[in-house]
């Protein structure tokens, strides 16, 4: 007999850790990106030409990683009873 309360509690712990490190990653990546771009924006005029490429890859990186984490969460939730993940 599966203890559903324990399973949901452990699933929340897994999700909580990922949300925490994901949040830290969002903060650090956007902070570093902003600091470097704002420092060089006026000093390096060529930056304006290639800025959209930088922005595209930043969004791709953060977007795909976030989608990946959501997919992992859904996968664990879907199979946790089948494979007895939290026993």
């Amino acid at each position: 007999m599966v203890n559903k309360i324990k399973y949901h509690s452990d699933l929340k712990k897994d999700a909580g850790i990922i949300v925490l490190v994901l949040g830290l990653m969002f903060f650090s990546e956007t902070f570093v990106f902003y600091k470097i771009m704002s420092t060089l924006w006026d000093a390096v005029p060529e930056l304006r030409t290639i800025f959209p490429v930088y922005l595209l890859f930043l969004l791709l990186l953060l977007g795909i990683e976030t989608i990946g984490c959501i997919t992992v969460y859904k996968s664990i939730k879907e199979h946790m009873y089948d494979f007895n993940y939290y026993d």
Binding site: I18, V21, L22, M25, S28, E29, F31, F33, L61, E65
Partner: peptide, 8 residues
């Protein structure tokens, strides 16, 4: 995620 964090 850890590596992205560390690299930035």
């Amino acid at each position: 995620i850890t590596l992205l964090l560390g690299s930035g």
